[in-house]
Amino acid sequence: MTTLAPDSSVGPLLRTWRERRGLSQLELSLRAESSARHISFVETGRSRPSEEMVLRLAEHLDVPIRERNSLLLAAGYAPHYAETPFDSPAMEPIRAHLDALLKAYEPYPAMVVDSLYNVIAVNAGVTVLMDGVAPELLAPPLNAMRLTLHPGGLAPRIRNMREWRGHLLAQMERQIALARSDALRALYEEVAAYPVPADDDGADGPEPGEAVPYFALPMRIEHQGQVLSFISTIATFNTPMDVTVAELAIETLLPADPATADFLHRGGAS
């Protein structure tokens, strides 16, 4: 469930999204080829927007498509976007394409997650991350944030845990600002309260003045007696027309140094 504003009519909801995006009524009207007067009338309830206008405003406000359906319902229209269960027969082409992508990325770790970081699918490379993880964290639904930040998960083996934790929490904060999901907020509050390993003092990083050998912040994790370094990338569907598809993300872990790549290619993730 998504919480947008105390008033559930479409005008206040649109105003909330506009203010969240930092746009004036005039700026929004120019983008949507409307008028500031009409935008004002819609927001105050003096004018009922057409279905096409709701969708146009939502597009220019970059409203997630789940919330676009909520805006349409608030305006008295039917939802425009389907929400097909991921295990539905209709999703077989999507599942097949995702499985092929994950397989092609091996031996590097890759997974598919939903909007709450629940893991939908993984490849064999992910086994490099599973050493010593508490069994309860591996029970369905497997959650990537819990798996990474929980003291029974990856956290004790991540050498730069404070940095990596800060990166993940900031990522969640940005998503909450975009969608204001109650469930995502609850997950954030849960994982943010997990303790940071006491021996993580940041001393494993480069010395002051030393050139940083990475072009992005890596996750540095111990595995089988050595430290592996990964840079995370996230891909989403560009023009989704289904809520489920819109909320899927493919996270891949790219080796950040030759030693990590060599370890994986030699079968270290087996």
Rank of each mutant, 00 (worst) to 15 (best):
H150F: 10
N123I: 05
A216C: 08
D131R: 00
V63M: 10
E173V: 09
A259T: 04
E106A: 10
A82D: 14
V243P: 03
L248I: 10
S88L: 07
F263K: 01
H265F: 07
I65L: 15
E27G: 03
E52F: 05
L4N: 06
G267C: 04
N238Y: 03
L248Y: 12
E136S: 13
P141T: 09
A75D: 14
T244S: 04
L228I: 09
E33F: 11
P140F: 11
R66Y: 15
G268R: 00
A90S: 15
Y214K: 05
L137D: 08
V112C: 09
L253I: 05
N143G: 11
A104D: 06
A78L: 07
G153A: 04
L129C: 01
A170N: 09
A249R: 15
L101A: 08
P135Q: 05
T127I: 01
T252G: 13
H265D: 11
S270L: 12
P6H: 08
L71E: 15
N69S: 13
V227W: 00
I176V: 14
R56I: 03
M161I: 01
A75N: 14
L154P: 06
L138R: 14
P197A: 09
E27C: 02
A203P: 01
R31Q: 12
H150L: 11
L73I: 13
G268C: 03
R266E: 10
V126K: 00
R159P: 03
D87A: 11
D257A: 03
R46D: 12
R56P: 05
L138S: 13
I234N: 08
P12A: 04
T233A: 11
L61C: 15
K103Y: 08
A235D: 13
L13I: 05
P156Q: 04
L101G: 06
F263Y: 15
M219H: 03
E190F: 12
F263S: 02
A186F: 07
A155R: 00
E189G: 08
E19T: 09
I94V: 15
P49C: 07
I250G: 05
E59K: 07
T252D: 02
Y188R: 13
K103E: 14
D62P: 05
G268Y: 00
G76N: 04
N69H: 11
P140Q: 12
I65Y: 02
L253S: 11
P218I: 06
P64H: 04
R95C: 06
Q226C: 03
V196G: 14
A82T: 13
L149V: 04
A96G: 05
Q171H: 13
T260E: 02
A192T: 10
Y117M: 15
N160H: 07
W17F: 09
L129H: 00
L187N: 12
G202P: 15
G45P: 09
F230A: 01
A179D: 14
W164K: 01
I234G: 09
T127V: 04
S47C: 03
H223S: 01
N143Y: 02
I176E: 14
P156W: 00
I231S: 06
N118K: 06
V122P: 08
V196R: 07
L178G: 05
L26H: 12
P79V: 06
L14N: 04
P109M: 04
L61I: 11
A235Y: 08
S29Q: 07
S35R: 09
R157G: 00
N118H: 09
L187F: 13
Q25C: 06
S29P: 10
I234H: 07
S47N: 08
A78C: 00
D114S: 07
V243N: 05
S270G: 15
G153S: 08
G268P: 07
M53L: 14
